Amino acid sequence: MNKPVNKKKTPAPLEAPKLPAHLPELTLVNMQSYDNIELGKVQDSFIDNCTARKVSFDKMILNNVTFTETSLTELELTDIVFERCDLSNVNFQDATIHRTEFRNCKLIGLDLTGATLRNVRFHQCLGDYATFRFANFKQVLFDDCSLRSADFYNSTLHKTMFQSCLIDLAQYSGTKLDGIDLSNCQFSSLGVGLEDLPGCIISREQAAVFANLMGLVVKD
């Protein structure tokens, strides 16, 4: 009797944002808590010194929008595209993000602590020092991103993919890496607990880095 062959499961494709063919131009000013903003395109804009909670964006495109001194806690994003936006040091703690794409965005120091992300893609984003502590990921792709010193402490990575990313000095302590493929990412050091490593997929060249984490000496 032939034994069954265990095949590696390919992650299901991400659901893309569901957007109508045409969206009217919108201007974002004076956002207030509990505002519901939907069905529009915002471009070449500055959002400055805005503090609110439980704002929701639905079916929108934000193109070349810069956020400064902005805190939108418990933000809800559904069917959103951020294109060439600057979200550096923005506070999106406890956000809920569904079917959203960040394309060519600057996300340095973005705070997504405690966020829930479902079907989210980060493509060619600069996310150094971004914070994802205690976040819950499912069907999330980081594609060709810089995540140096990003913080994934105690987060949940379910069906989360890192493709061709720079993750040097990223912090994964308390985060189970079982099934997470880092084999085509670049790093010389990671913050990770030994108990979280089983099942992590790495390349032969990266094995020496993990050996050093375990106190082993690799001999040529």
Rank of each mutant, 00 (worst) to 15 (best):
Q186T: 03
S188F: 02
E69N: 07
D35A: 03
P13F: 08
A21D: 03
F142G: 10
N64I: 04
R53L: 02
K3T: 08
L169W: 03
Q171F: 10
A21V: 07
K54W: 01
L14M: 04
F162M: 06
Y172M: 12
C145R: 08
C165E: 00
Q163N: 15
A208V: 15
F134G: 07
T160F: 00
V140I: 12
D143W: 12
I37G: 00
D86T: 07
V90A: 06
I47Q: 13
G174M: 09
A135P: 02
N49I: 00
N212E: 10
L19V: 02
K59F: 11
V42N: 02
V81G: 04
C85K: 06
L194E: 04
T27G: 08
P198M: 02
V65S: 12
L169I: 08
N49Y: 13
F57T: 12
L147D: 03
N91F: 05
H98P: 06
G109Q: 08
I108Q: 05
S164R: 08
L141Y: 15
R53H: 04
K18V: 14
A95E: 04
S146G: 09
S149H: 13
C145W: 02
I108D: 05
D111P: 00
E195R: 14
T73C: 10
Q171H: 14
F142E: 02
Y34C: 11
A95P: 09
